[in-house]
Design a protein around this nucleic acid. Structure first.
Length: 197
DNA sequence: TGGACGATCCCCT
DNA sequence: GGGGATCGTCCAT
């Protein structure tokens, strides 16, 4: 992906639903042991202040602290006793908002991603490599240590790409939540096979 | 100090 | 389509 630049800080400081929508089509890059694991973001959800479904709804705690950092950091949380999920922090410091990355389409080092998910992926389709928030974290080696990483650094970052036409973007309510229903803050690429169900 | 539960995934039916 | 795995976080005793 020669010539593509990292998204600047200013990209992340904008309203969270705008960031969620515009992250579609961008390249999520993970540098791990000298390898460049890359996937195109195809599904994302916005979590805003005043939203009962957001981890930040209860206020600032040790767990959700990174959500309140300046936009352009990575908030990684642990859930269900075994899974990690990755979020892009948005807006200015002191505001607890973020975008959950729910799915990516593998682009580069796909064989490494298969190996990272080997235990459970042995006889599954290519789609199941990264069609969910915890699956893509496993495929890209994103875990507890990556919580709080600066997306303008060298370990995890996002490369710019042309904005997708609005005709290729769809919206829906968010997945797997009970509070805050009705908000159509899930964005995904129409007809892309890696979008979760 | 304890218990309820979760922005999920996988395997089984 | 349903349930079990599995444990950190948070709040109520």
């Amino acid at each position: 992906l020669p010539g593509l630049k990292k998204l600047p800080r200013s990209f992340y400081l904008r309203p969270t639903v705008v960031v969620a929508r515009e992250l579609l089509g961008k390249y999520l890059v993970r540098i791990y042991k000298g390898q460049r694991l890359i996937g195109t973001i195809v599904e994302a959800e916005a979590y805003c202040e005043g939203d009962p479904a957001s981890h930040s709804y209860i206020g600032r705690t040790k767990r959700n602290d990174v959500m309140f950092w300046e936009g352009g950091h990575l908030y990684v949380y642990f859930t269900y006793g075994m899974h990690f999920c990755a979020n892009v922090v948005t807006r200015n410091a002191g505001i607890g908002e973020a975008v959950l990355i729910r799915a990516v389409e593998p682009v580069q080092e796909i064989d490494v991603m298969i190996r990272n998910r080997r235990a459970s992926h042995s006889k599954k389709s290519a789609v199941e490599l990264t069609n969910g928030p915890a699956k893509l974290c496993q495929a890209l080696c994103i875990g507890r240590k990556e919580n709080g990483i600066d997306l303008l650094g060298k370990e995890v970052f996002i490369l710019d790409a042309p904005r997708l036409p609005s005709s290729s973007i769809r919206t829906s309510t968010r997945i797997g939540i009970t509070d805050g229903k009705g908000k159509k803050w899930r964005y995904f690429v129409k007809r892309n096979g890696w979008v979760s169900r």
